[in-house]
Protein backbone atom coordinates (compact mmCIF):
# COMPACT_ATOMS: atom_id res chain seq x y z
CA UNK A 1 0.00 0.00 0.00
CA UNK A 2 1.46 3.33 -1.08
CA UNK A 3 1.46 5.93 1.68
CA UNK A 4 1.03 9.61 1.00
CA UNK A 5 3.59 12.05 2.45
CA UNK A 6 3.29 15.81 2.38
CA UNK A 7 6.64 17.66 2.72
CA UNK A 8 6.38 21.29 3.79
CA UNK A 9 9.72 23.06 3.50
CA UNK A 10 10.82 26.21 1.72
CA UNK A 11 14.08 24.67 0.51
CA UNK A 12 13.25 23.84 -3.10
CA UNK A 13 16.29 21.72 -3.95
CA UNK A 14 16.17 19.81 -0.71
CA UNK A 15 12.50 18.91 -1.07
CA UNK A 16 13.01 17.84 -4.67
CA UNK A 17 15.72 15.38 -3.67
CA UNK A 18 13.75 14.21 -0.67
CA UNK A 19 10.83 13.42 -2.92
CA UNK A 20 13.05 11.52 -5.35
CA UNK A 21 14.58 9.47 -2.55
CA UNK A 22 11.29 8.62 -0.90
CA UNK A 23 9.56 7.75 -4.15
CA UNK A 24 12.49 5.60 -5.22
CA UNK A 25 11.57 3.18 -2.42
CA UNK A 26 8.33 2.58 -4.26
CA UNK A 27 6.42 2.80 -0.97
CA UNK A 28 5.54 6.44 -0.91
CA UNK A 29 3.80 9.08 -2.93
CA UNK A 30 5.23 12.48 -2.10
CA UNK A 31 3.75 15.94 -2.53
CA UNK A 32 5.96 18.99 -1.89
CA UNK A 33 4.70 22.33 -0.66
CA UNK A 34 7.39 25.04 -0.59
CA UNK A 35 5.11 27.77 0.66
CA UNK A 36 4.14 27.18 4.26
CA UNK A 37 1.13 29.51 4.01
CA UNK A 38 -0.37 27.09 1.50
CA UNK A 39 0.38 24.02 3.62
CA UNK A 40 -3.14 23.69 5.04
CA UNK A 41 -4.82 24.00 1.67
CA UNK A 42 -2.50 21.48 0.14
CA UNK A 43 -3.04 19.14 3.06
CA UNK A 44 -6.81 19.32 2.59
CA UNK A 45 -6.47 18.58 -1.06
CA UNK A 46 -3.89 15.81 -0.79
CA UNK A 47 -4.98 14.30 2.53
CA UNK A 48 -1.58 12.82 3.34
CA UNK A 49 -0.94 9.94 5.71
CA UNK A 50 1.90 11.89 7.31
CA UNK A 51 3.39 15.37 7.14
CA UNK A 52 7.10 16.22 7.16
CA UNK A 53 7.41 19.78 8.42
CA UNK A 54 10.38 22.14 8.40
CA UNK A 55 10.56 24.51 11.38
CA UNK A 56 12.17 27.69 10.09
CA UNK A 57 10.20 28.97 7.13
CA UNK A 58 9.23 32.43 5.99
CA UNK A 59 5.59 33.40 6.20
CA UNK A 60 4.48 30.76 8.66
CA UNK A 61 6.88 28.61 10.60
CA UNK A 62 6.55 24.88 11.18
CA UNK A 63 5.17 25.38 14.67
CA UNK A 64 2.33 27.52 13.34
CA UNK A 65 1.50 25.00 10.64
CA UNK A 66 1.38 22.18 13.18
CA UNK A 67 -0.77 24.22 15.55
CA UNK A 68 -3.26 25.01 12.80
CA UNK A 69 -3.41 21.37 11.86
CA UNK A 70 -4.29 20.60 15.48
CA UNK A 71 -7.18 23.03 15.27
CA UNK A 72 -8.47 21.47 12.07
CA UNK A 73 -10.72 18.41 12.56
CA UNK A 74 -9.82 17.10 9.11
CA UNK A 75 -6.07 17.24 9.75
CA UNK A 76 -5.88 16.76 13.50
CA UNK A 77 -5.06 13.07 13.33
CA UNK A 78 -2.40 13.21 10.68
CA UNK A 79 0.97 12.48 12.30
CA UNK A 80 3.65 15.12 11.92
CA UNK A 81 7.41 14.73 11.85
CA UNK A 82 9.43 17.89 12.16
CA UNK A 83 12.75 18.58 10.51
CA UNK A 84 15.12 21.32 11.36
CA UNK A 85 18.56 22.63 10.62
CA UNK A 86 18.50 24.63 13.82
CA UNK A 87 21.47 24.08 15.98
CA UNK A 88 20.74 25.34 19.44
CA UNK A 89 19.21 23.10 22.06
CA UNK A 90 16.35 25.29 23.09
CA UNK A 91 15.10 25.70 19.58
CA UNK A 92 14.79 21.97 19.09
CA UNK A 93 13.52 21.13 22.56
CA UNK A 94 11.16 18.23 22.86
CA UNK A 95 8.75 20.58 24.60
CA UNK A 96 8.28 22.62 21.51
CA UNK A 97 7.83 19.48 19.51
CA UNK A 98 5.20 18.10 21.86
CA UNK A 99 3.44 21.42 21.95
CA UNK A 100 3.16 21.44 18.22
CA UNK A 101 1.64 17.96 18.36
CA UNK A 102 4.50 16.47 16.41
CA UNK A 103 5.63 12.99 17.14
CA UNK A 104 9.27 13.36 16.33
CA UNK A 105 11.94 15.79 15.34
CA UNK A 106 14.75 15.08 12.95
CA UNK A 107 17.88 17.17 12.62
CA UNK A 108 19.02 18.33 9.20
CA UNK A 109 21.00 17.09 7.34
CA UNK A 110 18.44 14.30 7.44
CA UNK A 111 19.83 10.80 7.44
CA UNK A 112 17.61 8.94 4.99
CA UNK A 113 17.83 5.68 6.85
CA UNK A 114 16.70 7.35 10.07
CA UNK A 115 13.87 9.09 8.26
CA UNK A 116 12.65 5.88 6.69
CA UNK A 117 12.71 4.18 10.07
CA UNK A 118 10.76 7.05 11.55
CA UNK A 119 8.13 6.74 8.88
CA UNK A 120 7.87 3.01 9.42
CA UNK A 121 7.37 3.56 13.13
CA UNK A 122 4.77 6.20 12.56
CA UNK A 123 2.70 3.94 10.35
CA UNK A 124 3.23 0.98 12.62
CA UNK A 125 1.96 2.87 15.68
CA UNK A 126 -0.95 4.17 13.65
CA UNK A 127 -1.87 0.69 12.56
CA UNK A 128 -1.58 -0.48 16.14
CA UNK A 129 -4.03 2.07 17.48
Amino acid sequence: MVRKILVVDDEVGFTKLLKMNLEKTGQYEVRVENESTKALTTAHEFLPDIVLLDIVMPGMDGGDVAAQMQDDPMLRNIPVIMMTALVSQEETSQDAVAQAGAMNILPKPVNLEVLLRCLEEAFASEAGE
Binding site: E11, G13, F14, L17, A85, V87, K108, P109, V110, L112
Partner: peptide, 10 residues
Protein backbone atom coordinates in the same frame (compact mmCIF):
# COMPACT_ATOMS: atom_id res chain seq x y z
CA UNK B 1 23.02 22.96 6.86
CA UNK B 2 20.36 23.23 4.21
CA UNK B 3 22.72 22.71 1.30
CA UNK B 4 24.44 20.00 3.34
CA UNK B 5 21.10 18.27 3.82
CA UNK B 6 20.57 18.37 0.08
CA UNK B 7 24.05 16.95 -0.54
CA UNK B 8 23.41 14.09 1.81
CA UNK B 9 20.15 13.23 0.07
CA UNK B 10 21.94 13.36 -3.26
Amino acid sequence: KNPLALLLLG
